[in-house]
Computed example of a mutant assay.
Amino acid sequence: MISMGTVAAVRRYPVKSMLGEDLASVMVTHAGLSGDRSYAVIDETGAIGSAKHPRKWGPLLACRSRLADGAVAVELPDGVIRTIGDPDLDARLTTLLGRPVSVSASAPAHSTLERAVPAYEGGVPDAVRSASFVDDTGERITVGKVASGTFFDFGRVHLITTSSLRRLRSVYPVGDFDPRRFRPNLVVDTGDGPPFAEDGWQDGQLRVGEALFRVLVPTPRCVVPALGHDELRADPGIMRAIAREHRVAVFDVGRLACLGVYLEVLEPGTVHLGDAIT
C-alpha cells in the first residue's frame, strides 16, 4: 500500500448548491457521505436548483445548509434559519429566487439540470457546446439530468488535493484557490507531492479511514468555482487558469478543464479528519 496523504478537510452539502459544513468525521455509505446532497431546490418546471446556472440559481450560494439531529436547517442570506419541512422556508426561497420553488428530497421524473456554457475552451465538450442555446435569462446553457435517483451530477464523492491547488496558485497568484470554491467532500493534504497526481489514480482504489473507494474519473469543472462563495469573491480568472493549466481527457468527450477526481464507494465506513489515505 502506498501513502497518498491525509484527510485535511471533510465537507458535505445537505442541500444541493447551498454552502455546506465542515465535519470532524462522517459515515460514508454506498450513496456517498451520509446526508450529502439529500435535498435540492426545485422550481415549477422541474429544474433542479444548481449554481451551474448562476443567473437563475446563483442566490443559493448565499444560503448555508447543515444537518443536525436528523434535521437539515437552512440559514438564509439575512441570517434567518428555517428547517426543511417548514413552509416558511419554501416561501423565503421563493422570494429569494423570484419564482415559486420548494425544497425536495427527490427529483421529479421530468427534472432537468441546467448548466451555463463558459466561453473558454475546455469548459464543456464540443458536442455539448454545439447543442447549447440561450434561455430567457440571456445565458447560454445546456440541459441534462442528475444521476438517476440522486441529486449528484455524477460521482457520489469528490476529492481534491493540496498539491494541485498549490500549482494553480503558482500560475495565477492573484486568485484565491480556497478549496471551498470547488465544493469537495474530501481535501487531501499531499504535502510536497506533485500536482495533479490524482489523474493517475483513475481505476485505482483508495483506502480512506474505514472506507474504500474506486477512483472513477477526473472532475470536469463548471462555472461554480469562479462565483462568490461566502466571503470568497467572484473571480472568472479561477476557471480560466484551470482551463489553461489542466485540461485532460475525460471518457470519450475530449479534453476538459479538470480539478480533482470523482470516487465510487466500494466499502462503507467512517472517515475522520487526519485519516491516512493509501
Rank of each mutant, 00 (worst) to 15 (best):
52 K>V: 05
93 L>D: 06
53 H>L: 15
62 A>K: 14
58 G>M: 14
62 A>G: 15
85 G>V: 00
87 P>D: 06
78 D>W: 03
54 P>H: 07
81 I>L: 02
45 T>L: 11
74 V>L: 12
94 T>H: 07
72 V>S: 01
67 L>V: 07
97 L>M: 06
72 V>Q: 01
84 I>K: 04
49 G>R: 04
69 D>I: 00
54 P>D: 10
55 R>E: 15
45 T>R: 04
79 G>L: 02
96 L>W: 05
60 L>K: 13
61 L>C: 09
86 D>H: 02
89 L>R: 04
64 R>N: 04
89 L>P: 05
63 C>K: 09
89 L>M: 05
91 A>Y: 04
56 K>T: 15
39 Y>T: 08
88 D>A: 07
40 A>M: 02
70 G>D: 00
73 A>V: 01
93 L>G: 06
79 G>C: 05
61 L>D: 03
86 D>E: 07
91 A>F: 05
71 A>N: 04
82 R>K: 08
78 D>M: 09
43 D>N: 11
55 R>N: 14
90 D>H: 02
70 G>M: 00
82 R>C: 02
57 W>I: 12
77 P>H: 12
48 I>R: 12
89 L>W: 00
97 L>I: 05
76 L>I: 12
58 G>R: 06
38 S>L: 11
57 W>E: 15
76 L>G: 13
93 L>Q: 07
47 A>I: 07
76 L>F: 09
45 T>E: 13
45 T>S: 14
80 V>Q: 09
70 G>S: 01
96 L>D: 06
47 A>Y: 11
75 E>M: 02
80 V>S: 11
90 D>K: 02
62 A>Q: 14
